[in-house]
Design a protein around this nucleic acid. Structure first.
Length: 530
RNA sequence: GGCCCCUUCAUCUAAUGGUUAGGAUACUGCCCUUUCAAGGCAGCGAUACGGGUUCGAAUCCCGUAGGGGUCACCA
């Protein structure tokens, strides 16, 4: 579609955790840059001092890097169009605003926020159709302006929107959109603290940075006429605007942190793989030929075409992401999964401090899912207290994880879910009651017998024998049959004794990982306890 | 409320005027099985509604309904 190199950008505000919507926009912007041989720019829109969060910028950058959506230019990377932080470009905005004032295209407004608030209340009370600034200062004479300035009255700069006719804007997906000029208002361009608003900063920077395509969220459509008029006032060519659909909560409202995890840190902490999340975001409003749902970024690029974006707002379905992440985990080479798990555990050790001393069931991931009733099967966890234990053991014995990985790989959907399977390999004492050992239609006596039989079978076996697994299987069947049991009920008590749970990776493989001594010790402990 | 955008299974989507409207997630059942998974097979399930245009409409047009966004010295 577009063959000329596109210069595109993502322009987040450093006001909190890095947002999943930022990653979504970054993906589509970067894809356009990469398919056209252009550049993808990160610009930090830190023009709101009251909402500024110091860590935020670094986290945004880290999160994008985590997702391999690293910008070609940006505050951390440099580039020919810097600085890339708006707070460092203030003179540019001031100059632009002054230019508009001197050309009669903008004006100083001395209205106090009190007046504005009162105005708003009146408009609401009157159920006025048009809400917003009434243009009082638009008609101020030069003398009045001079007088106000002489008195050093604080002021903002407002744009003179045309008052007659229609304003046509173009959207790549929607074509021509027409707005009535009279329904527009004179928006603030420069705040009284000398910082620009989004509108001014965006126009000035996109022009200065040579942005060719503005791919942004749909929520910006209502201010697009302003943006077109601004470009016109400056005498600049407007870039192509493409308004992407908004990611949605389950109730179809714009995705929000009260109703959905929106922080990229959350996804990382829950153990989602960046390539899976990126793939999932690529599925939002876009699809590849032949029903292909799992794809690398390179494959995504091969088929990427802005014209094929679906503009109905997609609901962010955590359940499907969970499935997709499981697919990615299963496709990882075992050694790679091990590496990811170790990295994840290390990270969790640090994050744990930030999670304070919350009990495990109240860690952010768990709490969130419970509160918002995501299906119980989506149990994104964090390793929590297990991480230090895991890392200590791993440092002593780097061979530790490999055999375990092969047992849990096809069971995990997130790295965090390793927490469901790993404790049995590190914990020496389980909390169980005799009742836990009683199988359906069975007795405690059956359980004791099963433990004794299994103990004997294991004690006399050679764990190193290549056909150990097969041998154990055969013997277990024989012993079960001798006791008049099926294999399941026979192994049930053994599973509890050895793993501490009714649910575990395959029993014999798990026992082999534990080793003969530890397995026998656990069986003895259980026998003594019941 | 004004303005604007959107509308195919519960969810993500395919079908660029001719298909029994396809796939995936979720759900259900069966198979496999040593619990849990994973895997295999099958089932459930949609063109919001009403009018046109057309031999023929999910697809084009109009209307209605529904949903969403926006109306800050936030972005």
């Amino acid at each position: 579609m577009t063959t000329a190199p596109a210069r595109v950008r993502v322009a987040p505000s450093p006001t909190g955790d890095p947002h999943v919507g930022t990653a979504y926009m970054a993906l589509f912007n970067k894809a356009l840059a990469d398919t056209t041989g252009g550049q993808f720019i990160l610009r930090i829109e830190d023009t709101d001092r009251s909402r500024y969060v110091a860590d935020s910028e670094a986290q945004i950058f880290d999160a994008l890097a985590w997702l391999s959506l690293t910008p070609d230019e940006g505050p951390h990377k440099g580039g020919s169009c810097g600085p890339y932080r708006q707070s460092e470009r203030l003179p540019l905005y001031k100059e632009a605003a002054n230019r508009l004032i001197s050309e009669g295209k903008a004006y100083k407004c001395y209205c106090t926020s009190d007046r504005l608030e009162t105005l708003r209340k009146i408009q609401q009370a009157e159920k006025a159709k048009l809400l917003g600034y009434d243009g009082l200062c638009r008609g101020l004479s030069a003398e009045e302006v001079a007088k106000n300035d002489a008195e050093a009255k604080p002021c903002v700069v407002r744009f003179k929107m045309p008052r007659e006719g229609e304003i046509d804007v173009r959207d790549l997906f929607r074509g021509r959109l027409t707005f009535i000029a009279a329904e527009q208002q004179d928006t603030v361009l420069l705040k009284s603290d000398g910082f620009p608003t989004y509108h001014l900063a965006m126009a000035v920077d996109d022009h200065a940075m040579g942005i060719t395509h503005v791919i942004r969220a749909e929520e910006w459509i209502p201010s697009t006429p302003l943006h077109f008029e601004l470009y016109r006032a400056f005498g600049w060519d407007a870039p192509v605007f493409a308004h992407m659909p908004l990611l949605r909560n389950k109730d179809k409202s714009k995705i929000s942190k009260r109703k959905n995890p929106t922080s990229l840190l959350w996804y990382r902490d829950a153990g989602f793989l960046p390539e899976a999340l990126r793939n999932f975001l690529g599925l939002m409003g876009f699809s590849l030929p032949n029903d292909q749902e799992i794809f690398s970024y390179e494959e995504f690029l091969k088929h990427f075409d802005l014209a094929k974006v679906n503009i109905g707002g997609p609901i962010f379905d955590l359940q499907k992401l969970h499935w997709l992440n499981g697919e990615y985990i299963r496709r990882l080479p075992a050694a790679e999964l091990e590496k990811r798990l170790v990295e994840y555990a290390k990270r969790m050790m640090h994050r744990q401090r930030e999670f304070a001393d919350l009990p495990e069931d109240q860690l952010p991931t768990e709490t969130f899912l419970r509160d918002f009733e995501v299906k119980r099967r989506v149990r994104s966890r964090v390793l929590g207290g297990l991480a230090p234990e895991l890392m200590t053991s791993y440092e002593v014995n780097p061979q530790l994880l490999a055999p375990i990985i092969s047992l849990i790989q096809e069971r995990m959907h997130t790295l965090g879910e390793a927490a469901d399977y790993l404790p049995m390999f590190f914990t020496r004492d389980f909390k169980y009651t005799p009742e836990d050992f009683i199988q359906k239609k069975g007795t405690l006596e059956d359980a004791r017998n099963a433990l004794a039989a299994a103990r004997e079978m294991l004690a006399t076996s050679d764990f190193e024998h290549p056909e150990w697994l097969q041998s154990m299987d055969e013997q277990a069947r024989e012993k079960a049959e001798a006791m008049g049991l099926k294999l399941g009920p026979f192994l049930g008590p053994v599973r509890i004794a050895v793993t501490g749970s009714k649910v575990s990776p395959p029993l014999m493989e798990s026992i082999r990982v534990l080793g003969k001594n530890e397995a026998l010790r656990r069986i003895d402990a259980a026998s003594a306890a019941i």
